[in-house]
Simulated assay, not measured.
Amino acid sequence: MARTLPEWMYPPRPSGWEADDLDRIPELPRHTELIDGSLIFMVSPQRSWHDRIIRRLTSALEDQAPAGHTVEARMTITLGRADRPEPDVIVAAVPYDPNRTNFLPEQVTLLVEVVSEESRARDRETKPFKYARAGIRHHWRIEDEAGNPVVHVYELDETTHAYVPTSIQRDKLAVTVPFAIAVDLSALAR
């Protein structure tokens, strides 16, 4: 028995999907990303740990972000025609807009990926490369280390257009860029 895909699942053009297409397809599952012109569906269930870290980190960053910044969880960023990934947390130097559906690289101050089993390769390899090429200066990757969040902090090297690690932080997170941030990491997972 052959299954046919719903009409909306077929790319609208031979070159594939484009970033703006994500706003025009009401049937798309929540948390759909566009990577290299291909739709990535985030339909596998996430662990409670993943969701808790995102929610609590988003709240901590909202409390500490400078005026005029907004913090969003699970919102896409348009990196180019064929790329619109969805980081777990975005801090952007723009005011809150209730109608916003995505951010542009020049608006983003910090991106955070909380690694899950399903997205491990994308979160560690594909997405950081694309974020760096788009010029986003600050990127964090959070890994699960025996139930505790460990933050890998990266900063963009302007010469190479690649991220360089600046620290790996456990228990307490303390950074001065992109702005002063202090987070009790052990409390995020409790």
Score class of each variant (00 low, 15 high):
residue 44 S to I: 12
residue 44 S to L: 13
residue 45 P to A: 07
residue 45 P to L: 06
residue 50 H to L: 08
residue 50 H to D: 07
residue 53 I to S: 00
residue 53 I to P: 02
residue 54 I to L: 11
residue 54 I to R: 12
residue 54 I to Y: 06
residue 56 R to E: 12
residue 56 R to F: 05
residue 57 L to V: 01
residue 58 T to D: 08
residue 60 A to P: 06
residue 60 A to R: 12
residue 61 L to N: 00
residue 62 E to C: 07
residue 64 Q to T: 04
residue 64 Q to D: 05
residue 64 Q to S: 08
residue 64 Q to M: 01
residue 66 P to F: 08
residue 67 A to I: 14
residue 70 T to F: 05
residue 71 V to T: 04
residue 71 V to I: 09
residue 71 V to E: 01
residue 72 E to P: 02
residue 72 E to G: 00
residue 74 R to D: 12
residue 75 M to E: 10
residue 76 T to F: 07
residue 76 T to G: 12
residue 77 I to C: 13
residue 77 I to H: 15
residue 78 T to P: 11
residue 79 L to G: 11
residue 81 R to A: 10
residue 81 R to W: 09
residue 83 D to Q: 14
residue 85 P to I: 02
residue 86 E to H: 05
residue 86 E to Y: 01
residue 87 P to Q: 03
residue 87 P to V: 03
residue 88 D to A: 14
residue 88 D to K: 05
residue 89 V to M: 04
residue 89 V to D: 03
residue 92 A to I: 04
residue 93 A to H: 04
residue 93 A to I: 08
residue 95 P to C: 06
residue 96 Y to F: 15
residue 97 D to H: 02
residue 99 N to E: 10
residue 99 N to H: 15
residue 99 N to W: 06
residue 100 R to I: 12
residue 102 N to E: 04
residue 103 F to V: 14
residue 104 L to K: 14
residue 106 E to N: 15
residue 107 Q to G: 07
residue 109 T to Q: 12
residue 111 L to M: 13
residue 112 V to S: 01
residue 112 V to N: 01
residue 114 V to C: 12
residue 114 V to F: 04
residue 115 V to E: 02
residue 116 S to W: 04
residue 118 E to V: 05
residue 118 E to W: 10
residue 119 S to V: 04
residue 119 S to L: 11
residue 120 R to G: 09
residue 121 A to C: 06
residue 122 R to Y: 14
